[in-house]
């Protein structure tokens, strides 16, 4: 592998500081070993190699691609693939993000939760939010539902007792063409306060 110039910072920035970073240039002594990233998905740690072989994570792979194609977690749906519809929403360190607009290679060390990670792995018991979606028939075709549930999960994580307006705001990036939105709002409100 080609030797790559690298740089090492001599002064680190701390939060809130505005020190200008000055660096000195270094040349790596050794060729880089295969880059690896580690991703915790639904509590399970995945160590993955970066590269272009089929079992590896290509730098161009989105998190949605990795979840669906590499890890087989097809519960995360891709609809618009351009960050506009929310179907691919997952939690990253507890926050809702769009897995279609996230590069997997930039998720090293992150904790990801997908729709598959909400129900109890031992008993299969549904998350109260999932149960509320079942009870309120808060879906029609169901394609947008996993993303919808993940957005709602993030919302309830931050705000366990949201108002109706806050639920709508929390789901403002999620597309439902069948218009199950009304039932979704009811389901999320019903689940609020009961969540973990």
């Amino acid at each position: 592998m080609e030797k790559r110039k690298s740089v090492r910072p001599v002064a680190f920035l701390k939060k809130g500081e505005d020190t200008v970073v000055r660096t000195q240039k270094l040349t790596r002594k050794k060729a880089r070993a295969t880059e690896r990233i580690s991703l915790t998905v639904n509590g399970k740690i995945h160590e993955m190699e970066v590269g272009t072989a089929s079992h590896q994570i290509d730098p161009a792979h989105t998190l949605a691609h990795t979840l669906r194609e590499t890890l087989g977690l097809t519960g995360t749906k891709v609809s618009c693939d351009h960050g506009a519809c929310g179907s691919c929403t997952v939690l990253m360190d507890g926050k809702a993000v769009l897995s279609c607009m996230t590069l997997t290679i930039e998720c090293d060390g992150k904790r990801i939760t997908t729709i598959e990670g909400l129900s109890d792995p031992e008993t299969g018991e549904l998350d109260p939010l999932q149960q509320a979606f079942v009870d309120h028939t808060a879906f029609q075709c169901g394609f947008c539902t996993p993303g919808m549930i993940m957005s709602a999960k993030a919302l309830l994580g931050e705000n366990p007792s949201p108002t109706e307006e806050e639920v709508k705001e929390g789901l403002s990036g999620n597309f439902c063409r069948c218009i199950s939105n009304y039932h979704v709002v009811k389901a999320v409100l019903a689940a609020s306060g009961k969540g973990r």
């Binding site: 097809t74 749906k77 729709i115 979606f133 079942v134 028939t137 169901g142 539902t145």
Partner: peptide, 21 residues
Amino acid sequence: KTTPRKDAREIVTGRANFLAD
């Protein structure tokens, strides 16, 4: 009567097997 949809559990757990899956 209001009953859960037959496919409700598959849908809310992400296990509903759509074409792309």
